[in-house]
Design a protein around this nucleic acid. Structure first.
Lengths: 342, 342
DNA sequence: TGTTAGCACTCACTTGAATAGAGTGCTAAT
DNA sequence: ATTAGCACTCTATTCAAGTGAGTGCTAACA
């Protein structure tokens, strides 16, 4: 059996209707709703076919049909093809000039959630090549050094280092030069024993101190290795009756709180192709708690090669068009924002 | 009418039973449960009195009684008096030596939630007097300065400053000295126009730059003005049927997500007296969404005068004893941890 | 005078049957 | 190929009756 034009139209009508109502839709509804001018009986036959083809499901005998994951998939795919980029700038979108990336992203998450009425999440971009750009050691107190490490992309890390021996100002200057000349442009993997040895030699009697400082630097660089993720609007999920089941809610809100699974999922998400919007339906997400949800993600680019993700989590019957266009808009704006800043 | 000894015993029995079951408790139960050897009829009379006194409530005729807020209050107060400090170290408590305060506190929140099966929250301590200890300006790139500000308590802030004009190394050194001599030991409020004027004079033609840098410093100091708050285990709340109502849940989880109200509440919480444990029952919290919950908070001390709060949110019928002792233990451990470190 | 037994009464909750309603599948007619 | 019509299925709602926990009150008792 083939999915001919008429079947497709009926399928779309079913999905459309279901997106609105959240109720299984029956043959009579379709018969009236569409301009196909077919009787409910005919629709019923077609629906039986569509069910056999796996696009729709009957929750129980004598109920209408609801879209299956496969059905949603088809719908989303064709929709995405049609509506490539009908970008309409959100008027309400007003991003306070926030200097801290963190708070900007938190705002974005909130914005998304409020605008769509679904749950949203935003990942903080990973600077994967963490090359050292600049290091500075400063004496804050007699027994406390402050190490400041600037990484590529102007990420600034800092770390206090307690020292036993009082350190001579002259020597601190020298130490600074040593660290900078040896480590500049390298990332964590490239700092090997040979380099460390050479540095220790230069430091003479202070060799021990060098180790300590190197440790601190290594720690500072590698911390926050895990992607940070910001979420908002988790409670929006409670609005949709099909998800409103004690256990489901517990699981869902739980995953939102824990974030681990979300992070993992967002990492797996394809994103090589910046600007592409992806839709994951039901079990396509591979997160058990979200098997009754759909997730739409988009990738934004802070600078070349540095990506973050923004996403929406909602019921399967979410308003895909709106979500996709909202995400698209926001993604473009984020891209712009960062482009301008650099 | 007076609350005599027998009435008190009955009240305690009622509360005790209700804490366990979550069901209204009837006279017969008490008659059997206690060692008072009273018939249910007598208990009934006493219960009628207790109700008149406002300690217990009857949800509807022909239901048992449940404690009122006033009843809980009494219970908690006497209990706290009795069990001052029966501290039992949690064996599972294993705090990874985390250098970042943030992740430590996140762990604490989680620990609390897991241990008690309620929702938990932890506020990050506020360093209220933010005096400048040390400032350093460094040239990272030709058009980018990095300002590092160390505040009292070794809080390090940093900020990138884009500059138009290339700056001379000599002068940068001088600028550093100027900033340090003028600003050291001052907090935001103490940096007044007179000081700023003097600094500009010293800077000569670079006066403009000084303004920019001061702006950046001011921003860096005042950012994160809002108390940060970490929460965990919000889903635990779903476990208790008396809170398991759609609207209540939405509200509760919502306040947990938004955090604003929580922050506000935790701020209002009394805490001058470090080590004191406070219990807020029902509407005592003044957060509408939490009117059916109780909150228990404790104050920990990072260093002299720097306090943070840890707290538990649960149903009114929470296991107060356990919660109080858990909080106490953790509070003491946190105190120790920081004391040792300094 | 405080305590207790007993009884009538109340009220929420459960159960089960009846009913309505939505929707299907199939058959026969067009 | 399409449609009308009918029997059938299954869910959800409604309603009545029954159950049981618990109370309040009264009268008897120590």
């Amino acid at each position: 059996m083939q999915l001919d034009d008429r079947k497709l139209k009926i399928l779309q009508a079913i999905i459309h209707n279901y997106l609105e109502t959240g109720e299984p839709v029956g043959s009579r509804t379709i018969s009236k709703y569409t301009d196909l001018n077919l009787s409910s009986a005919t629709i019923r036959n077609e629906m039986a076919d569509l069910e056999e083809l796996g696009y729709i499901i009957q929750p129980h005998t004598s109920a209408g049909r609801i879209p299956s994951d496969k059905g949603y998939r088809l719908y989303v795919d064709t929709m995405l093809k049609d509506k490539t980029s009908e970008v309409e700038y959100m008027k309400e979108l007003f991003i306070e000039k926030a200097d801290k990336l963190d708070s900007l992203l938190k705002q974005v998450a909130k914005l998304l959630a409020v605008n769509t009425n679904y749950a949203s999440l935003v990942t903080k971009p990973q600077y994967r090549s963490k090359k050292v750009k600049f290091i500075q050691l400063t004496e804050v107190e007699a027994d406390n050094l402050l190490a400041i490490i600037v990484l590529e992309g102007n990420i600034v890390k800092n770390k206090m280092i307690s020292i036993a021996e009082v350190i001579d100002k002259e020597f601190l200057l020298k130490l600074n030069i040593v660290f900078n000349t040896f480590l500049q442009g390298l990332d964590l993997a490239e700092i090997n024993m040979a380099i460390i040895q050479k540095m220790k030699e230069q430091a003479g009697t202070y060799g021990n101190l060098v180790s300590n400082i190197l440790d601190a630097i290594a720690q500072a660089i590698s911390e926050e290795e895990e992607v940070e993720i910001y979420t908002s609007g988790a409670t929006n999920i409670l609005k949709y009756p099909e998800l409103n089941d004690r256990d489901k809610i517990t699981e869902l809100i739980g995953t939102f709180e824990e974030q681990e699974q979300l992070t993992e999922f967002m990492n797996k998400t394809e994103g090589a192709d910046s600007g592409k919007i992806q839709v994951y339906i039901g079990s396509e997400t591979a997160v058990k708690a979200m098997k009754d949800c759909s997730v739409v993600t988009a990738t934004y680019e802070i600078e070349d090669g540095v990506y973050g993700k923004i996403g929406i989590i909602g019921p399967k019957r979410m308003d895909y068009e709106k979500v996709v266009s909202t995400l698209h808009t926001l993604m473009v704006q984020l891209d712009d924002l960062f482009r301008k800043k650099t």
